[in-house]
Simulated assay, not measured.
Amino acid sequence: MNYSVKETYNKLANDYEHNVDTKSLFNTEYERPAMMRLLPADLKDKRILDAGCAAGWYTSQLVNLGANVTATDISPKMVEATKRRIDENADVLCLDLEKELPFEDESFDLIVSSLVMHYLKDWSKPFSEFRRILKPNGTLLFSIHHPFMDIKLSENGNYFSTEFLVDQWKREGKLIDVPFYRRPLQEILNETLAYFSLVKVVEPQPTKAFQLMEPDKYERLMKNPHFFIGKAVRNK
């Protein structure tokens, strides 16, 4: 699975670097504004892990807010794109989140993971590692596909199962297979609660700018959530 995701995002890296980060309304006017509103007010000198950084949009934002950022991605091409974006202003590593992370215990104030966890079948390893490397009262902020969206792509129709799916995205004139895992809401919540205290759940809504540019999609998103955001804290 990790090999498939790595290869998929190697193919998508150029599109993310030059198109998604500026032109995709689902990112610029939907997921990202909601995530940014949930960040702590003061990030100056805070140590932050951008877990699954893609082409480095969040990495750049966090650096600009004064944080000391380490960014990781499983795709070497995405890592290269992030390095081009942020130059020497953050550490950028090619890592698999399903394996042990090369960071000391209690070394991060905040972990941001944007639209990553649905690519992982088993959350126990990454969540246990996130908990290990977060400081006491440190925060995990993550977004994923909303289970109400993914069930529409289900092959078995069993909402309560964890199911491997392959979607197709049209990017730069090509169809690209994108593998991921669908899971029910109770599993999302219970997996999170096994390692953290859940502070807030957000089902984001698109911005008014989204409405002006894509009114039909805006209306659909106002009635049918596309993403899910969780904000959680590591207790002592």
Results as ranks from 00 to 15, higher is better:
F127K: 00
V92H: 05
K121F: 14
I133E: 01
K121H: 15
A67P: 02
D105W: 05
D50W: 08
Y119L: 11
Y58C: 09
L95R: 07
D105L: 06
V92K: 13
L97I: 05
E80Y: 11
V69Q: 04
P126C: 14
I48A: 08
I111M: 01
E98A: 15
S75V: 01
F108C: 00
E98Q: 12
A81E: 09
S128T: 13
E100L: 14
D87V: 12
G138W: 02
E88W: 10
S75A: 01
L110H: 04
N89W: 09
D109S: 13
A51M: 02
N64I: 05
V79T: 08
A71F: 03
T72G: 12
K121D: 14
Y58E: 12
D122K: 10
N89T: 12
R132C: 14
W57N: 09
I133A: 11
I111Y: 03
L95F: 09
A81I: 05
E88Y: 09
D87N: 13
D122I: 10
P102T: 08
S113R: 06
L134P: 12
T70L: 09
L101E: 03
P126I: 13
N68Q: 09
S128Y: 11
D96H: 02
C94F: 07
I133T: 04
V69L: 01
E80I: 01
V69H: 00
A54R: 07
L101R: 03
T139E: 09
N89Y: 08
K77T: 11
M78K: 05
F142S: 04
C53H: 02
L120A: 11
A81W: 05
N137D: 07
R131T: 07
K99S: 14
I74S: 05
P136Q: 03
R131W: 11
D91Y: 08
S113L: 04
K99I: 03
I111R: 06
A54Y: 08
S114Y: 00
I133K: 04
K125A: 11
L93T: 09
Q61K: 13
S124I: 11
K125V: 15
L110D: 02
R84A: 10
A67Q: 01
V112Y: 02
S60A: 15
L134W: 06
L95W: 06
